[in-house]
């Protein structure tokens, strides 16, 4: 089977007249059809930028994308406007963190979905609305017919996010990028939306990249996790193995600072220090200044990706490398 997504050595630079900041640096991963990957990492580590780069949604004048992105056999970075429009929504779609601001506030929700369906399938608005109704049923929005007529501000946060999912799924994409889709919701609603996403993923057999801060969520829905730090993926592997026996000290730190599965009497450990300044990264491992196990060599150059076991990759000098990784 061919991978659905192949990303090789992806880099994203934000350029202004005065400065150039590398927000994503040498990210590589691949995903098989139907696979669910979670991206974890601190705020500012480049998760959203990576997602947006996959759909070429970054501001074209202020950003530069390097490396290779292939989705469903097509070279995304070489696409012209038409091919991009067909890919966006048709092959890959995205759910955003803030459902309140992600809809056009002055257009009825149903019409917004119908417009996208009409655009991709070349059908009438009316046909598009019929599809929107199907989708509202699919994402289990009660009184779907009436809700289609609602403006975004008339829906609750949970319903809005369901409508957002309906919009994203409207043209049956093969890959769904979910950028913290539950962060803005109440805890109980979060779980409902999560359960919905998982069951839809199984029903429709899509691949999903799920960005989250929450290890519990990752353990719940992902097949694989990728841990990002300062624009790099520092560790990937199957969710069970990474959570059970992390290779990278940063991953261990993340596991130690989570509320889940900790004895109540033990104090939560936080990772010492602050996230790095992306404009002035250290020459070696970006995590070295905060790393409890840092060696002298860590500061000399970025550690290469090593794969100590099949399916596992980490970028840390302390990890022994019995075999070369497929994707570095």
């Amino acid at each position: 089977m061919q991978p659905l997504v192949e990303v090789e050595d992806l880099s994203v630079d934000f350029v202004t007249r005065e400065s150039r900041v590398r927000a994503v640096n040498g990210v590589s991963f691949s995903m098989m059809p139907g696979e669910v990957m979670c991206m974890l990492g601190e705020s500012g580590s480049g998760k959203s930028v990576t997602m947006r780069a996959l759909m070429r949604l970054l501001p074209p004048k202020r950003s530069e994308i390097g490396g290779r992105i292939r989705i469903a056999g097509q070279d995304v970075l070489a696409m012209d406007d038409r091919a991009l429009r067909r890919m966006r929504g048709g092959v890959v779609s995205m759910i955003f963190q803030e459902p309140m601001t992600a809809f056009d506030p002055v257009v009825r929700v149903g019409d917004q979905i119908a417009e996208v369906v009409a655009q991709h399938r070349g059908v009438s608005r009316r046909e598009g609305l019929r599809r929107a109704l199907e989708l509202f049923d699919l994402v289990r929005i009660p009184s779907a017919e009436r809700r289609l007529q609602a403006y975004p501000h008339e829906l609750s946060g949970g319903l809005r996010q369901r409508a957002m999912i309906a919009l994203a799924l409207s043209c049956e994409p093969k890959l769904l990028l979910a950028d913290e889709p539950t962060t803005a919701l109440d805890a109980t609603v979060q779980i409902q939306v999560l359960i919905l996403l998982r069951s839809l993923q199984r029903e429709l057999g899509m691949s999903v990249v799920f960005v989250t801060h929450d290890l519990g969520v990752a353990a719940e829905i992902a097949d694989r996790v990728a841990i990002m730090y300062a624009g790099r993926i520092v560790e990937t592997g199957s969710v069970r193995e990474v959570l059970r026996s992390p290779l990278h000290p940063y991953t261990s730190g993340l596991l130690g600072s989570t509320v889940h599965d900790q004895p109540r009497d033990r104090a939560l450990e936080t990772i010492p220090g602050a996230p790095p300044d992306m404009r002035a990264l250290p020459p070696g491992c970006s995590f070295a200044p905060r790393c409890p196990q840092a060696l002298g060599e860590c500061a000399s150059g970025p550690p290469p990706a090593v794969s100590p076991a099949p399916g596992r990759v980490a970028r840390c000098l302390r990890v022994a490398a019995p075999q070369q990784p497929e994707y570095a």
């Binding site: 759909m55 949604l57 991009l84 429009r85 067909r86 890919m87 966006r88 929504g89 048709g90 779609s93 995205m94 955003f96 803030e98 601001t101 992600a102 809809f103 056009d104 506030p105 002055v106 257009v107 417009e115 996208v116 655009q119 991709h120 919009l167 994203a168 409207s170 043209c171």
Partner: peptide, 25 residues
């Protein structure tokens, strides 16, 4: 600069349709 403009683009709408949404706002 609002988020929904990104949503419209992320759903493959052509730029003139994006602009129509923006102007209505």
């Amino acid at each position: 600069n609002q988020e929904f403009v990104t949503t419209l683009r992320a759903n493959g709408l052509p730029e003139w349709r994006v602009l129509r949404h923006a102007l209505k706002n």
